[in-house]
Amino acid sequence: MNNVIIEVQDLKKSFGGFLAVENLNLKINRGEVFGFLGPNGAGKTTSINMMVGLLRPSSGQVLIDGREVQEIEKGTIGICPQELVLWDYLTCRESLMLMGDMYEVPGAKLKKRVDKLLDDLFLTEKANTVVSQLSGGMKRRLNLALALIHEPEIVVLDEPSEGLDPQSRRVLWNYIRSLRDDEGKTVILTTHLMDEADRLSDRVAIIDHGKLLRLDTPSNLKKETGEGDVVEMIISDPGKNQEFINSVKKLEGIYGVVEVNSQINIRARDAVGKLPLIMDELKHFGLRVVDLSVRQNTLEDVFIDLTGTGLRE
């Protein structure tokens, strides 16, 4: 069996004059969790809608197991959309049974599957409650369950943790991992949360303004922008940020200095050891520290490195 399950070739989509996705090329492997990372409006949803066959590309093609996405067997893909797409007047169980019927899942199997999904996603108690009376988190989980009822080979999750509290998010993350590890599914997820992409994905595609900027494993991506830690600081006179950055750049052992939203990010090996040097420099300019913290390098730093800006929310 071919290891590549989805192949995207020269995918392009324009709406009127606006180019939403530009020459996207990528291969997704069977059984991996593949993350699309990018700010809102980067073209993530447009890309995945084309990849599942809901949206027609302007040019290029998507091959699933070597076949055009429009010609694949229905039910190969399950998609959990970003918005809540539910029938307000059906109960959880009715919704799941309906989608199961639509995918022609045989009756006895469907019943078992519904029970398992309700149980896995902590919805058993609410099985017979109509959707309009569920809490936001429950609706999210049902939204996900509906994408999985027919046991699709490929599961596409568009911003799955949007609007979830930390506890529900943890439930979701564990569930996504179990989809890959226990059921061998290929999972594609889009997110604008660095943390989510970092923790869940086997590989991450960083995308902005419709362009693929980088595609690699999270650890490689972090390595690429250099190892080490990041010092984030805010100085007393933001007007002098640039001047200060230029002089810090000249210091030894400093990998990079960037300004993000009036905050200065300094990436360095052994950042704590470099702090006295940085402070000396600050004094030299007659400035004070307003806020300072030291943390590990994250995907966000990769993103900043690639785009020159922080993630737009």
């Binding site: 229905k74 039910g75 998609i79 959309p81 797409v85």
Partner: peptide, 17 residues
């Protein structure tokens, strides 16, 4: 409008159904 049709159209449901 609600997107439920997009859900349904990925399934085996037909226009007649």
């Amino acid at each position: 409008e609600k997107g439920t049709l997009a859900r349904l159209k990925l399934s085996n449901m037909t226009s007649f159904d």
